[in-house]
Simulated assay, not measured.
Amino acid sequence: MTLVLSQDVVTTWLERFCADVVAAESHLNQLDAAVGDGEHGSNLRQGAVAVRALLRDRKFGDIQEQLMAVAMAIVNTVGGASGALYGTFFLRLSDVGAGRNTLDLAGLTEGLGSALAGIRELGGSAPGDKTLVDAIHPAVAVLESPSTGSAGLVAALDRAATAAEQGRDATAAMVARMGRGSYLGDRSRGHIDAGATSMAMLLRCLHASAEEVTS
Rank of each mutant, 00 (worst) to 15 (best):
V175G: 01
K59I: 09
L67A: 05
L184C: 04
E212S: 15
A176R: 00
L143C: 08
S188P: 09
G149P: 01
Y86W: 15
L184G: 06
R180K: 15
I63Q: 02
S114L: 12
V22H: 12
S26K: 15
Q7C: 07
S6T: 15
G149F: 03
G152K: 05
A33F: 02
T171R: 05
L3R: 12
Q30K: 13
A126R: 13
G181D: 07
A210P: 01
M199E: 05
D104Y: 08
N43C: 03
F89C: 09
L54N: 10
R16M: 12
T12N: 10
T12A: 14
T214W: 02
M72F: 11
D8V: 10
V75A: 13
W13R: 06
G185E: 04
D186K: 12
G195N: 06
E15Q: 15
L91K: 14
V133N: 03
R159I: 06
L203Y: 08
R56K: 14
A81E: 07
V4R: 12
R187C: 09
T162C: 11
A135T: 09
D20E: 15
V133F: 06
A161V: 08
L14N: 02
R177D: 04
R180M: 10
M178Y: 11
R58H: 13
S147V: 13
G99D: 08
T131G: 04
H40F: 09
T12M: 09
H191C: 10
V96T: 08
A200Y: 00
L132Y: 01
A172P: 08
Q66V: 00
S198C: 07
A164H: 04
T109L: 04
M178L: 13
T131V: 06
R177V: 05
S114P: 00
L116H: 02
V75F: 12
G123H: 01
A84D: 02
F90Q: 02
R45T: 11
V10R: 00
A160N: 03
P138I: 03
G97M: 04
E144G: 13
V75W: 04
G47F: 03
